[in-house]
Design a protein around this nucleic acid. Sequence first.
DNA 1: ATTGTTTTTCTCGACAGTCGAGAAAATAAC
DNA 2: GTTATTTTCTCGACTGTCGAGAAAAACAAT
Lengths: 416, 416
Amino acid sequence: MPAASYSSLPASPAAAQRAGTEQLRRHSLALVLSALREEAVLSHTALSERTGLASATVTAVTGDLERLGAIERQDQPASGGRGRPRVLFARRRRFSHAVAVQISSDALHYGLADYGGTMIDRFSRPRDIAAGTPDSLLSDMGEAIARLIQRSRLEPAEVGAISLSSKGIVDADGGRLVWSPVFGERSVEFSALLEHWPAATLFVSNETLLVAHAAARKRMAESPAEGGAGLIALSLGHSIGLGIARIEEGQFSVSAPNFGHMLNAVDDRLCRCGLRGCIEATAGFYGILRIAFQVPPNTIPARFVPLTEIEKIALSARQGTRMAQHAFRQAGLALGQGLSRVLSLHENLPVIVTGPGTRFYDLMQPGIEEGLRQSLHVRLNGLPKMTVVTDESSLVFAGHVDRALTAVDQRVVGLR
Amino acid sequence: MPAASYSSLPASPAAAQRAGTEQLRRHSLALVLSALREEAVLSHTALSERTGLASATVTAVTGDLERLGAIERQDQPASGGRGRPRVLFARRRRFSHAVAVQISSDALHYGLADYGGTMIDRFSRPRDIAAGTPDSLLSDMGEAIARLIQRSRLEPAEVGAISLSSKGIVDADGGRLVWSPVFGERSVEFSALLEHWPAATLFVSNETLLVAHAAARKRMAESPAEGGAGLIALSLGHSIGLGIARIEEGQFSVSAPNFGHMLNAVDDRLCRCGLRGCIEATAGFYGILRIAFQVPPNTIPARFVPLTEIEKIALSARQGTRMAQHAFRQAGLALGQGLSRVLSLHENLPVIVTGPGTRFYDLMQPGIEEGLRQSLHVRLNGLPKMTVVTDESSLVFAGHVDRALTAVDQRVVGLR
DNA sequence: ATTGTTTTTCTCGACAGTCGAGAAAATAAC
DNA sequence: GTTATTTTCTCGACTGTCGAGAAAAACAAT
């Protein structure tokens, strides 16, 4: 409860608002569309119940949406009870499509989803970190996306959104990657990609932000009544990612703070970003490696550490090797201290831990808890609820698709 | 830009939403009311321009508000130009009143404002920190507020809101002070105060949150177009306070993180909260004192340090005493490092520095900047814009009044 | 004094949206 | 074939916003 917060009046009134009552209709359209995302197929009455709109209004709204081509009636009889058979509405899958690309340090994962939210194609391409440049990455991605679209025989205009994610710092509005583990401060301008798919909106997100997005969406779908304040997603791996989703009044907003490079302690541990004392420099895979092997802390970090390396360290830690245990404990401490700072700034949100590093969670947990307990906030509110979710990638893709389709929905709503 | 953030769809649809088109009217009412808070007196046409509502709608809305008693026409001829004289609308001052109490460690400051937002009475009472208990504080406040209201010959029912602020951690919804410098973990239940003023809504806010509130409101009034992301208020004194206001789409929301007791470094410096390494333990007045006089860092902090003590240290620092300079530098470092963490979590917001500690800002500034520069975020985005504002108290009261009257407005809007 | 000019407010009819109630539709049961 | 049942759709009432023009209320000119 502590970190008090509330929000205030309109204030800047003449802001971008249109006519009066038509705004209302837009809201109703959005309501129906969003209900049809949570539950793929709904009858007239079910829509009325879920959205709170009167039955008459549902008729009007679904009529609009059918005319726009965004939804369609399923002609399945769906023979159930006795009376007039219900008409079932569903999003029209061919209406639009979303491309998702997960850019990770060793591979690129591509996915294509239809307007209904189901993945219709996906493939991966390995990535050569050493050889790549921002330009080569862009052209590789352009080709791969073209391929993805051709395989499903789609027209370029049928791509409504392209959503990219990477670890690192992102300028969401500008479609740029500002800082990334691989390219450092050489920024990548993804907006150039849009040339070939003019109908598409581009999203560039931090990867862990999407995890938080997907987790928050899931939580809201499962317990809609819960005004729960939100959640934190923490991704452990070569780098450390964090996403925060805050839920308020049925809406949620999500942000990706620059957690991995938040200052942790004034120590000598050199980070990939060139500074010292970042959380990542202790808790990232290369940080763990450095401590475990007692490499001097100011050694320039390895660009990439294979997971098997860390697993060896973990094995020896589990067998009792002191230095390996110490490395994981230090990593946990840095994470716990960092988390305690995040919690001081927000409320006491539950934490979802993902990423390849979760296999070592048992080794880090004591350190994490110790670090957390060092702050007044945690002492007053107790430890946050921590949940480990191993399958990060599917959360990332869920986040991609949800975010992209939400945008398409908004465009639909804007068309009257 | 980095810390990417966006917000999402409605989603939980059947939430507390009333009938359809009446919502619209409520919005229009709020628009007019809020315009009349930014500019005390506005004509029919001016209202139409500022709110974006059609002239006909303004007639309808002002009619409603007059009927409710919230606004009134000023019968001033306001003889200006040539044509039909404009009717001027203003908030009806007697419509409601707000009580504001600033609880500081050495005094209680009381204020009474009318619905127009002007202070009509104020006085202060000294506070004996050593002798007081939560109960005695409550009863003192009850009496003082009663006195305040009687002096202006108001009925209890004419008090629409009571807004309290303190340093420390606040449970805004519950009307409780969870942790305070004076009472520690002995919480104070202010909700008991409401007994005597049943028509009033109670607000309990962190003091620096109100500073951020007032500053954000001011900024929006001055440059409404600016979608500026928000601002941070930092209050320096015996304890350290922080408030964050984020402005998005004409709305702003404000929160008060637990900054003073955010973990800064794992050192031995004992904080008033009983833990070690809090920012306050280095940057609060008692922290500065402890370092300057080379008292062992784990000494139990003084409950209160007179400002003159710190001024003496500042004087000797300005005269070149090393240890005094060191103390301010350490304080600055802790603040800068802490701020860098806040900035990592939000965007690169400008910072407003207030509080009694601002007189020593010149001594702390180098340390602050050094601390800030230790994080990747600052390196990428540059130092935040820092502005010193000495008159903290008037910002606090402005925040109190604005917050309280906003709540009264919302109640008005709710009444049809 | 009367008439015209100007500026602002107010009124009126049109339009868009939502809602409740009941009509209409479409099926299963009898 | 008729009836019961369930769901969808239609209709009229209500609320709200808007644009246009009428009405109001002043000053200026004659």
